[in-house]
Computed example of a mutant assay.
Amino acid sequence: MAFAAIAVAAFFVFPYDLAFLTRILIMIVLVLSVDLVLGYAGIPTLGQAAMYGSGAYAAGLFAIHIWADPVAGLVVGAVAGAVVALVSGLVLMRTKGLTLIMLTIAVAAILHEIANKARGLTGGADGLRGIDMNPVLGRFEFDFIGGTGYWYALAVAALVYAGLTVLTRAPFGLSLRGIHESPERMSAIGAPVYWRRVTAYAIGGAVAGIAGALTAQITQLVSLETFAFALSAEALIMLILGGTGRLSGAVIGTTLFMVVHHVAAANDPFNWLFVIGAMVLAVVFFLPAGLIAAPTALARLTKGGRNADRT
């Protein structure tokens, strides 16, 4: 509720930055998918862009050739992301460590090349254009200033957050935490570790597909950059900044990264990466659990100082 209240306030405080704020909301959905896969299930990945791009292209093609309804497009994007994650996950989840990470990157690279070669369908390097969406729920048309797109993205992000909250607190989510901590122990008590990991990866793919579909519908353009390795890497950095294994950490980390990125790049287009790098190093060294753990760390530090004074 606090995050939703801040998002509503941001609409009125920054009315001329709605495109940027909408981008933050879309990235929050993508980082939430990474958090489910990595933070809860313990599946290291640098290829979440594979599902994100699949959802974007699927939603874009669906709008152009079949039906331009936004909600239906979200469903198509989610299905596309889930299918890609499920098919690849059947192989990927049989590996671990560096091999798994490299294979996730390879899947995204393969899909990138397929989209590039299928120029007649995807537009190739020129991107998929001509996406003209119908009004949301048949009433709210996408406007030039981005108001409808912002509220639409906010509603989707809130629903995804709520759904993942329920999922991670359910027995399935708790079993994912157990698998993350000790796959051997979970296997010993009879938990189907392999299939739970495949399922988590597929659900994470569906969420990433929703993020991609949002991008296609709101920007009305899909480019090959949706499969870029940089997108997966940035999503992972955002999650690390906020804190893995906590959905609120994904929201905090994404917002902080994108705001700092926006401000730093605007002030120094050539050296803004220095600011991002310094911020990541500071969090990794002083708050290994992410910014979500800052209140706890501060409370311990304050308590330790009081105890020292008493001594």
Rank of each mutant, 00 (worst) to 15 (best):
P15D: 11
P15M: 11
A19N: 06
T22L: 11
R23Q: 14
M27C: 08
V29L: 01
L30H: 06
V31L: 01
G39L: 12
P44Q: 14
T45G: 03
G47A: 11
A50E: 11
A50L: 03
S54P: 00
G55N: 10
A59R: 11
G60M: 02
H65V: 13
D69I: 09
P70T: 15
G77L: 05
G81K: 08
V84L: 04
A85I: 14
V87F: 07
S88L: 12
L90K: 08
V91H: 15
V91F: 11
K96I: 09
G97R: 12
L103Q: 09
T104V: 15
I105H: 03
A108H: 06
A109F: 07
I110R: 11
L111N: 10
I114Y: 10
N116G: 10
A118R: 14
T122K: 07
G123R: 05
G123P: 02
G124R: 04
V136L: 07
V136K: 00
R139K: 12
R139I: 10
G146D: 06
G147M: 07
T148H: 01
T148I: 06
W151G: 04
W151C: 04
V160N: 06
Y161G: 03
T165D: 02
L167Y: 14
R177K: 04
E181Q: 15
E184D: 15
S187C: 08
A188P: 00
A191P: 00
A191K: 04
V198T: 01
T199W: 12
A200Q: 08
A200R: 05
A206F: 15
I210R: 02
G212E: 02
L214E: 01
A216W: 00
I218Q: 06
T219D: 03
Q220F: 00
Q220G: 12
L221R: 15
V222A: 05
L224E: 09
A230R: 13
S232W: 06
E234F: 07
E234S: 09
L236G: 06
G249I: 15
T255Q: 11
L256D: 04
F257W: 05
V259A: 01
V260H: 11
N267C: 15
N267M: 14
P269M: 01
P269G: 04
F270K: 02
L273D: 15
L273V: 14
I276Q: 07
G277F: 14
M279R: 08
L281F: 15
P288F: 10
P288K: 15
G290I: 03
G290R: 12
I292V: 08
A293I: 09
A293E: 07
R300E: 06
G305N: 05
R306P: 01
